[in-house]
Amino acid sequence: MVDQIPPPRLTPEEQKRRRKRSLVIALTLGALVVLFYVVTIAKMGPQVLQRPL
């Protein structure tokens, strides 16, 4: 049996800051997905979408 380490109890202020940080990380990751997509299209051209089915 392994002892479980209880998660730290955050103050309301810490929870608020963590939520805000998580939101910005999520938005940044979303922006990166869009960036990689448009860079791929820009580098390879529209023919990247044409492929045999």
């Binding site: 730290p8 109890r9 955050l10 103050t11 202020e13 810490e14 800051r17 963590r18 805000k20 940080r21 910005v24």
Partner: peptide
């Protein structure tokens, strides 16, 4: 100014 939890980031987005 406030109590902090050990091991938990105290940074706000603006600080980063």
């Amino acid at each position: 100014e406030s109590r902090v939890t050990a091991g938990v980031s105290q940074g706000d987005v603006s600080d980063f």
